[in-house]
């Protein structure tokens, strides 16, 4: 029981993830800033922001649906933290695993987006409502390519468990190269999930102020931002586990360092994408996802099937 609690609350659960999330946000902001020829924030900036937000007054709009408005940030954070338990880090074993957890993780990662939608919708402000509608519209566009991108490797591995997927690639050392196009697809799609440029349409500051988060303030906003940070770490870990499944099975310390390098590499790639692109319009985004990203994902699936059918016999 005690170890279970330790896992859930300290490592790799809530506390570790929060710290990791804040650090990842720092890394993301710093890399982004350096690529834009800026100095960027000091390492403690995300933590300082978080603490400052905790101390701020929380304003709940009078016309908002109080219960949903209060609950949604908690839900978002919970879902993001939970999904991390299924992702293998430096080993081929995650904390919890069963056949089908890949799908569970993907769905758990969808929950924050849904909570953003509900939170934005219930805050009953024009900007939030439009942000909410946009976030759900965008969900339908990026989710399919993301699923196809991530499911292709599992198809090749022949299992729906993330732990078994990494075990498979660990055993068949160079097969992960086949999935590299999938990595590119997933990288672009998760920009939508994490609401970053070019798909930061739901919270496009210059158009709809704060989008879904417009009415959130104080502790609730701190929780929402923490949820996004944790989600970024989880997504990066997921991509690292699925697409970069090498260097596993070392001693815990070495393995952990290799894991960190992989995660920060993914974060670097995501920062790179948002440095070089401008924000798209929602209809351009949907068009792009269905016209180019989804067929590319389909192609990746076909390639994986082909490899599985021909090479693995």
């Amino acid at each position: 029981m005690a170890t279970q609690l330790f896992y859930l609350l300290i490592f790799p659960g809530f506390l570790f993830l929060s710290a990791f999330g804040l650090f990842a946000e720092y890394a993301d902001r710093k890399i982004y800033a350096r690529m834009q020829n800026r100095i960027g924030p000091p390492w403690f900036q995300p933590l300082a922001d978080f603490i400052k937000l905790l101390g701020k007054e929380t304003i709940i709009p009078e016309s908002a649906d109080r219960r949903i408005f209060l609950l949604m940030p908690v839900f978002a954070l919970t879902a993001a933290v939970t999904s991390f338990l299924y992702i293998p880090m430096w080993d081929t074993h995650a904390l919890v695993s069963f056949n089908g957890d890949a799908i569970v993780v993907l769905y758990l990662l969808t929950i924050p987006t849904v909570t953003f939608f509900l939170g934005g919708w219930s805050s009953n402000s024009m900007y939030s409502t439009i942000g909410a509608v946009r976030s759900i519209t965008q969900l339908f566009a990026y989710e399919v390519p993301l699923f196809m991108g991530i499911l292709a490797p599992s198809l090749l591995a022949g299992t729906w468990s993330l732990s078994e997927i990494s075990a498979f690639y660990n055993a068949h050392s160079w097969y992960w190269l086949v999935n590299l196009p999938g990595l590119a697809i997933a990288l672009i799609a998760v920009q939508g999930k994490l609401e970053k440029v070019p798909f930061d349409i739901p919270e496009a500051e210059t158009e709809i102020v704060g989008g879904t988060f417009t009415e959130y303030s104080g502790r609730l906003l701190a929780l929402l931002r923490m949820a996004l940070d944790v989600e970024m770490v989880v997504v990066a870990s997921l991509l690292a586990a699925v697409f970069l499944p090498f260097g596993l099975g070392y001693a815990p310390i070495t393995g952990f360092i290799i894991y960190l390098i992989k995660v920060f590499f993914i974060i670097f790639l995501m920062a790179l994408v948002r440095t070089v692109l401008a924000r798209l319009r929602i209809e351009q985004m949907v068009n792009f996802c269905w016209k180019y990203l989804a067929p590319a994902g389909l192609l990746q699936l076909v390639v994986c099937l082909f490899v599985k059918g021909v090479m693995l016999q």
Binding site: M35, Q36, N37, R38, V197, P198, D200, A204, T206, T275, V276, L277, A278, R279
Partner: peptide, 16 residues
């Protein structure tokens, strides 16, 4: 203009 279309890199470069 870059900032308005979410292209902050252009903003940072041109203002530099």
């Amino acid at each position: 203009a870059g900032h308005e279309i979410g292209f902050d890199t252009l903003l940072m470069y041109s203002w530099r």
